[in-house]
Design a protein around this nucleic acid. Structure first.
Lengths: 138, 138
DNA sequence: GTCATTGCAAATGCTTTGCAGTGCC
DNA sequence: GGCACTGCAAAGCATTTGCAATGAC
């Protein structure tokens, strides 16, 4: 629990039952959920919430920088509430499991000026792929 | 031109006019094309090619390891024929332009055993994001 | 009271699929 | 000549949108 709700309120975010539930779902121990999974968990707490509202709210949280969108493949995006805790991802190519990892060093420092082509580089996203112990055993 | 066709033929890939055209489009100077862009260029050379065949062929080239799928956002995947030349990507958050980059060091070496959680790590994909000179000027 | 937010349902964009016909090896 | 590949059209999945009704501030 990282007090996402408190931060949002502090930023003047208009609070509704639907938005609160979406934020609570993300702020729980659940990370890397798809929009559909967020909807399912939100519906369990607030049956009348709609799919469109979940999408709207997730998009808003991403714009606010409180949640990060993780695109691991061409399928559904995943939403990661750990935006204030920089990290990267390790994904099982077999079952799709995602783990947060903290590699040594900052990837940004590995990109010399000569490789920046005049870009103003703002960030780096690192995805490791491999096979998890479970899939390797099965 | 990297003789993608020769490699494919050598691997016993069944050759058809459609497959040849898709491979030729990718093997040209065009990289980071979406499936739709590949279809457009393929159609220019072979008007009767179908969208399904382009998708089939691209999927096959990816399975063969001759082409890499790059998922930069939740939109269309892009296809990168540079599979035999390891590299990473720098993407403009404004216009979507993609450049190949070669950062210093191997990202894999930055992930200590303690951060691998028992996974057999096979590869790392690094995406830098920033604003390109064109967008910064405009 | 005002205006942002919601819910619904339809629309969109990208990709996959089923199946009959075609053509490569 | 067999069987993989192709084309078509329809289905599928994730996401977005239009608009009237609702409710937070």
């Amino acid at each position: 629990m990282s007090d996402l709700l408190a931060r949002l309120r502090g930023r003047g975010w208009r609070m509704t039952a639907q938005r609160r539930v979406v934020a609570e779902v993300l702020d729980g121990e659940h990370i890397h959920l798809t929009a559909d999974e967020v909807l399912a968990r939100a519906t369990a707490r607030l049956p009348e919430i709609s799919r469109a509202t979940v999408y709207n709210t997730l998009g808003e949280l991403v714009s606010l920088g409180e949640v990060t969108e993780v695109t691991t493949d061409g399928r559904a995006k995943r939403y990661d509430p750990n935006a204030h805790h920089p990290h990267h991802h390790l994904i099982c190519t077999c079952c799709g499991t995602i783990r947060d990892v903290h590699p040594n060093g900052d990837p940004l420092s590995g990109l010399p000026t000569s490789q920046r082509f005049g870009f103003t580089v703002e960030g780096a996203e690192l995805i490791y792929r491999g096979v998890c112990p479970g899939c390797a055993a099965g």
